[in-house]
Amino acid sequence: MQNEILRMLNENARLTPGQIAERLNKSEKEVAAMIKRLEEDNIIKGYRAIVDESVFSPNCVKAIIEVKVRPERDGGFNNIAKRVSKFSEVSSLYLVSGGFDLLIEVQGGTLQEVADFVSSKLSTIEGVISTSTHFLLKKYKESGKMLHNEDEYERLKVSP
């Protein structure tokens, strides 16, 4: 049941315990208790809408930054990754395989803000060897949701 609930909320966080219970054939109480536990255990980390941010912050700038770092003898990439993730400009941060080590998503109010973050904050951190910044031009899909509408195609209204 736990995974089923997580899957459903991940898809649509506005489902109520009652709705979830009906779909899973469980009682509302059971589901509410499970959700509470998942919240307490920090498995559910929060709820928020997937929105078109350009509406409320039209000048918002996002970038993806590839970062090469020198791992430390104790702690490898962990310390530096945790340190970078403390910056409020950083919205996501991953350790990745391949030609660089950290993949960072940052956002700022203006292009200048993001550029300043990279040059004065990120690249000056001890252990950061190099950065490569890609500014995002247009978003097509986020968290599994396409951001453009496709024409609806209607089935026959009745079929055997």
């Binding site: 195609y153 089935r155 026959l156 209204k157 009745v158 079929s159 055997p160």
Partner: peptide, 27 residues
């Protein structure tokens, strides 16, 4: 087929919620 008659009827109407469709609603 009795379904055929119903099809004709439904087709004359707008805004019908159809639970009469024997195929997946997924593409």
């Amino acid at each position: 087929s009795g379904i055929r008659d119903f099809f004709e009827l439904v087709n004359t109407m707008d805004d019908v919620i159809s639970l009469g469709i024997g195929e997946p609603d997924f593409v």
